[in-house]
Write a protein that binds this DNA or RNA. Sequence first.
DNA 1: AAATTTTATGCAACATAGTTGCGTTTTTCT
DNA 2: AGAAAAACGCAACTATGTTGCATAAAATTT
Lengths: 138, 138
Amino acid sequence: MNITADDILKQSHLSITSSRIKILNLFLETKGALAHGDIEKKFGGKFDRVTIYRTLQTFLDKGIIHSIPTADNSVQYALCKDDCTAGHHHDQHVHFICNQCGNTVCLDDVHVPTVKLPIGFTSTQVHMIVSGICKDCK
Amino acid sequence: MNITADDILKQSHLSITSSRIKILNLFLETKGALAHGDIEKKFGGKFDRVTIYRTLQTFLDKGIIHSIPTADNSVQYALCKDDCTAGHHHDQHVHFICNQCGNTVCLDDVHVPTVKLPIGFTSTQVHMIVSGICKDCK
DNA sequence: AAATTTTATGCAACATAGTTGCGTTTTTCT
DNA sequence: AGAAAAACGCAACTATGTTGCATAAAATTT
Ligand SMILES: [Mn+2]
Ligand SMILES: [Mn+2]
Ligand SMILES: [Zn+2]
Ligand SMILES: [Zn+2]
């Protein structure tokens, strides 16, 4: 028995609304990551753009999704599979962006290696974004 | 004797224009990375926004600057110190974003480690962005 | 050094992306 | 079911980025 959108919202103490259910279901059904624009296209005016922005922000805050910075200035979002909480994210996996199909995927099994920073620098978060050709496009 | 903006433009076979000189000098004078907005603020209407966009794109193409994706959807740019050419960039160093002062810096001495990707994935570029507290803010 | 060609810039107009306030609707709590 | 709290939709606005084209500046040729 898989976890449902409903469960996730309850766990995060969020009101169950139809926008949240639908957006969360889209994440659950999608392999890769989603940008704000993807969600907007998918639901084509079914709900307001602003609702999507606020929903994504809420999900980020609650540790339901994490954001992935990309070089082309379009932030992608993906479900957190690790045990992220409202306070902090622990998604320490590598992200892969395919230059062919454009998909962004979480490489859940590829852990971000630690690097030795110069004296005086303290790290709280590390992003590793690899781009190239994915297994479906090779 | 340090390299001048003029030299860099000549090396890249670019016309020497006052906008390019000024923007390039700003990069040469600045320790950290610059976002489009930073440059716009700095020169406050001295030249057109469009010129800044096009100049940054030209510098990127010619391998004079490289771009650094950030989580807050604002791409940063920094001078290439490695031997980047018009075709390809080889800036394989880690980038650090300070949550305190907001500065983004190239950690030129910290090399991006290689990771083993799953079967079928091929990598052409790797970004590693570490955020935390920089040495000036600790 | 002047004329010509090439390239870059500024401007306008547009497109896309993201934010904020507020009245209305929906959800939750009692 | 009714009251309180939270989320939504709409409008208006700001910010960010793109494109075409006339003008200006730089490089090249004569
Ligand atoms: Mn991920
Ligand atoms: Mn760098
Ligand atoms: Zn692909
Ligand atoms: Zn700092």
